[in-house]
Each structure stands twice: as C-alpha cells, then as structure tokens.
Amino acid sequence: MSITLQLLFTGLGIGSIYALVALGFVLIYRATNVVNFAQGDFSMIGAFLMVVFAVDMGLPYWLSAVIAIAAMAGFGILFNYGVYYPLRHRTFLPVVISTIGASILLQNGVLAAYGPHPQSLPAMLPFPGIAVGGVFLDSQYLLILAVTGAMVVLQYLFFERTMLGKKLQATSQDKEMASLLGIPVALMIGITFAYSAVLGGLAGILVAPLLFVSINMGSTIALKAFAASIIGGFGDVTGAIVGGLALGVVETFGAAYISVPYKDGFAFLVLFLFLMVRPQGVFGEKVAEKA
C-alpha cells in the first residue's frame, strides 16, 4: 500500500511538470493554431536562468526564481515578435519550421555560453522532505505539486473571472471577430506567449534540482508534454493537466513494476494506444458548431 502511494506521489510530481509544459503548448496552439516546437526549450532557458542567478551570481533562491520567471515573460514576448509575429499571416508549416529553428538556435546559443557539461542545482527547500506513514514526501516534489496546484487555480480564475481572460479566449476562438470588437489581437497573442513561456520556465525551474540542467533537457520534457496534451485532447486546457498527471503516474508505475530502461517508452505506448483507440483524447471535441 505505502509503495503504491509513494509511486503515486512521485508520478503526480513529475506529471505536474508535464502538465505545465502541456498547458503552454495548448494555450499557444489555441491562440495561434500552431504547435510551438520550442516549448521545451522554454523550460531549458528557465533552468539555465536559475543557474545564472542562483549559482553564478549567488542570489537567494527565491529571488532568483522571481527574476527568472519575470525574465521568462519578457522572453515569451521576444519569442512572439521574433518567431511568430512576422509569419502570422502564413500557413501552419512556415510557423512550425520557424519554431523548430528557434529551438535549434536556443539550444546552440546556450551551448556556446555554457558548454556541453550539464549544470546542477540544489533542491529549493531547506529540508529533504517529510515522512507520512510509510511514504516519504520529498520536499522538491512537494514544491512542484504545490506550485502546479496554485498555477492551475490562478489560471482558472484568470481565464474564467477576468475580462482579459475572456478576451484571450475570444482571440483563440475567432481572431477576426475579436478584432472587429476592438480586442487588440496582436497584444493578446503576445500575452499568451509570455504566459506560456512563464509556464514552461516554471516547469524547468522546478524540475532542475531533480535532473541535470542541460541544453537538451527540454526535448524529453516537451515530447512527454506533447504526448500528454494529445492524450488529454489536443487544444483542451483540462485535458493538458489531466494528461500530464496521468502520464507521470503511468511512467512511474511502469518503471517500478515493469522496466526502468523502458520508462520513456510507456509514455509513447499510452500515446500510441490513444491515437489508435481515441485520437480526439479524453476531453476532445467538447465544442461543436451548431447552425
């Protein structure tokens, strides 16, 4: 029993990381109809910013995190204007290629600055964790779960309870109509990129102490997050969260009971099954058009 709870705790923790990155995918996809192949690199950049502020400059951890997150918002806006905005009237493919190019540029830019050796970050909280019953709750995983939970609640309140949230939703549903109503569409898309970069950066900052900080750390996370968003129903916000958590749990149990080396394979096995059996995902196609 306690081993099951232990695995569930770990799985939800890692699944939260996938969920944050998957949310970033989904929000950008909904606003622009484009899959951002540099989404994982947002996490990599966030983690490296922590290395810069907390390790190289020796700033306090919490301050480093605050600066890094603010910097990620600015980075998202720059990314919008450099990678998406000039191609916004083009079809899907040129924009996707632009994001792939951005991903290569970001990884090699960081490689040039930091070299190929992975960096490491210490855990964020000053205690290793707490034992509850027979389950050890690692402090970093607790932090991941708490921050992800808070983000999900804040995001819900923002999108459902504020006029700006409604304008962002309107923009993602019909850009031309939004502009006819006087909603500044380009600004809305800029805000979406900023927020998605914050989500991705946050995931990178939170997961960094568990992994090494390396230039390709974002690729694996992004692949899992992408799989999670398809399992959840691509384009669906709730689906991204549920898909991310589910994937984290499945691969943690798979690694424990079946095979550690094939850990990454379980995610794609689940993805494969979904594509075969329910390609629209768990929450897909809720919105239908009516005459």
Binding site: K166, Q169, Q173, E176, M177, A288
Partner: peptide, 8 residues
C-alpha cells in the same frame, strides 16, 4: 454568419 464565440 453571426460569428458567436462558441466557447463563451
């Protein structure tokens, strides 16, 4: 075509 935002 009215163009109501379907999800709002």
């Amino acid at each position: 075509g009215r163009r109501i935002f379907p999800g709002l």
